[in-house]
Amino acid sequence: MKFFKVHIISLYALLIIAFSACNSSSYKISNSEVNYILIDSLVGYDQGLEDEIKPYRDSLKAEMLKVIGTAAEELTGGLPESLLSNFVCDLVLEESRSLKATVNPDVSIVNVKGLRIPISKGPITVESVFQLMPFENELVYLTLSKQQITELFNFMASVGGDGIAGASFGIKNKQAVDVKVNGKALEDREYVVVTSDYLADGGDHFTVFQSAIAREGSGLKVRDAIVQHIQKQTSANKNIESQLDRRIYHAD
């Protein structure tokens, strides 16, 4: 009996040892070393891949150099309002209004800091629009209360103004005064603001957007809105222009 028991145990041991020794699942990491290899000119390059890329690069360059419109004047950014931010905010409001039957935004906001270069007088290339708006930001609709709209404009007043369309206000003691939306004083209702997802997420200190009552994506990127608007103007034989209309002004 005693012998039998030992025998069984031995058999088990043999089987288990044999199995675990030859089993493929018995490897473990015994040592690991990590490197981050900087990919710079010292690496050299793969000629085959380079040959594959070149026709795309050449054709992309040609695409980027395409002229999509003409600017009648130079549009530059600045505060409290600017030709550049007024142009972009006006077109954002217009393009986003024709996007959805159910959503009709009252106000558009695009931060002037996000418009990276001026639009030069003369031909406008695809590339220049990529330089103006290198970010992949999408337009989103935010529903804000009257109180939140007031908070929003007060914030914009406190930083000396920014890009806006559909509304106007003066800046007095860093507060927004004589606020108007679509030419009318604020009413006790909800307002829809169209802006970039970057600002909607609280970027550039637009934190009030984070507590919006509702948020809906548009599927349209800011850059694509700019490109399609310029193309429409060109089709209608219009040059690109903008004006300063005291939508934000110093009331001190």
């Binding site: 490897y27 473990k28 990491i29 040592n31 690991s32 070393e33 990590v34 981050y36 290899i37 900087l38």
Partner: peptide, 15 residues
């Protein structure tokens, strides 16, 4: 951005 390539060298030993 493809600025770096991550590289992990492992030595695997039987357990």
């Amino acid at each position: 951005g493809g600025i770096y390539l991550g590289r992990l060298d492992l030595q695997m030993k039987a357990n």
